[in-house]
Amino acid sequence: MTSLTHLQRLEAESIQIMREVVAETEKPVMLYSVGKDSAVMLHLARKAFAPAPPPFPLLHVDTRWKFRAMYEFRDRMAKETGMDLLVHINPEGIEKDINPFTHGSAIHTDVMKTEGLKQALNRHGFDAAFGGARRDEEKSRAKERVFSFRTAQHRWDPKSQRPELWKLYNTRKHKGESIRVFPLSNWTELDIWQYIYLQQIPIVPLYYAAERPVVERDGALIMVDDDRMPLEPGEVPMMRKVRFRTLGCYPLTGAIESEADTLPAIIQEMLLTKTSERQGRVIDHDSTASMEKKKQEGYF
C-alpha cells in the first residue's frame, strides 16, 4: 500500500481545485503577486495542466511600488512558463500619483490594489481568479471557503457563500459575478516552505538574507529599493543583513534581520522565532481596517 504524505495530499487537492475551475468557468486568471505563495500556486498550476502550459494568463496588479527584484522575477517566470502575463496599474493611481508616502498605506492599498484588481477583472471579463491566500494566515480566515463568491461589484456577501462538501465545488454564478478561488486554503506557512524546498521552486531572492540598504520607520526596517524612498534630512541608510517574510510594496513591507540565506535556514528561523508572518506587513498595523473589511471590499 502507498501512503501519501501530507504534501502529496495537499498538492493533489490544489490541482483538483484548479482543474475544476478551468473546466467549469469561462475565463479564469491567476492573480500573481510574485510572493512565495504565488510561486507555489504557479508551480501547482503547471503540474495540473502539464504538458500544456496552464490555460489561463497571469495577472499582476501592480502598484508601481513593488521591489525591483520582484519585477525581474515576475518577468522571468512568465517567460519560463510560457504563460501570458497581464500587468494592470490603476490609471487613476498614476494620474494622481498615489503613493504610500503622501497618501498613507490605506489609501495606497485601496486605490492601487483593491480598485486596480477590480478594474483589471472587469476589463478582461475574468469570471474566476486564483489567489494564494491561506486559512492559517489569520484567525478570521479560518472560515474562508475555497471558492469565494463576489457580486458584480466585487463585494463579498456572506449570504452567498456556499458550503463545500467532499471535493464538490459549486462554480455556478450569474452573469457579471465572479469567484475568487484559493487553492492553497489548507496549506500552512510551514507546508509552503517545505514544498518550495522539496520541489526546488524558484522564489524571489528577497526571501533570503543578504545585506540590503534599509532605514527604520516606526520600528520596521524598510528597504531603500530606489530613490523614490524619501529619507529624513541627513539620513544615511544602513547596509544590514535582512530578509523578507512577505513581499509587497517595498515602503510597506518590513524586513527582519536574519542570517538565513538558505531554504533550510529560513525554515529553521521560521520554526524557532515565533511571530506570525503578517506582522511584517505595515498594512496590517495601519488604521483599524480589519481583514474582514478588506475582504468585503474585495482586497482578496
Binding site: 545585506e211 540598504p213 531603500v224 530613490d227 541627513g234 544615511v236 541608510p237 544602513m238
Partner: peptide, 12 residues
C-alpha cells in the same frame, strides 16, 4: 567602509 548606503545621501 562597510554597512552604510552612502549613495542615497546627498550630504555625503
Amino acid at each position: 567602509f562597510h554597512g552604510a548606503w552612502f549613495q542615497a545621501s546627498p550630504e555625503v
